[in-house]
Design a protein around this nucleic acid. Structure first.
Length: 117
DNA sequence: AATATGGCACAAA
DNA sequence: CTTTGTGCCATAT
């Protein structure tokens, strides 16, 4: 019996809580949304994100600080550029001082009240 | 409807 | 540190 395993809209709303200059991970979002195992699905949500760039999908990276994808290989440069404009230094596909920039203090309560475009 | 492919994570080697 | 294999869930074909 199956139920919803991870709520796509909830993930988008949670992601909106990540402030400029910070990053989060696919895993953190999956956890916050209630399914720690669904990190890969979160990636799929980002890939088909209808609310970009209102929903800051460029602020989502691997849980170890590496960048991961962004629509293939070429446009990864743009992700880096956006992040650096927000104050996040990226070197060798890795976020510098990852821990300091890492955000995972999501509020599920606030997210549920958030509206989506 | 069935299989393949991903903007992932984690453990083992 | 790297590579390889496995689990997971949503999308693309």
């Amino acid at each position: 019996m199956s139920t919803i395993v991870i709520d796509r809209n909830l993930v988008y709303r949670l992601l909106k809580q990540v402030p400029k200059g910070k990053v989060t991970s696919y895993k953190a979002l999956a956890e916050a949304a209630g399914n720690p195992k669904a990190s890969r699905a979160v990636g799929a949500f980002m890939r088909t994100n209808p609310y970009a760039p209102i929903v800051p999908c460029h602020r989502v990276v691997y849980s170890d600080g590496r960048l991961g994808g962004f629509s293939g290989k070429i446009r990864i440069k743009e992700k880096i550029k956006m992040l650096e404009e927000e104050g996040v230094i990226v070197r060798n596909d890795r976020v510098e001082r990852f821990k300091e920039h890492y955000f995972d203090r999501f509020s599920i309560e606030r997210a549920k009240k958030e509206a989506l475009p």
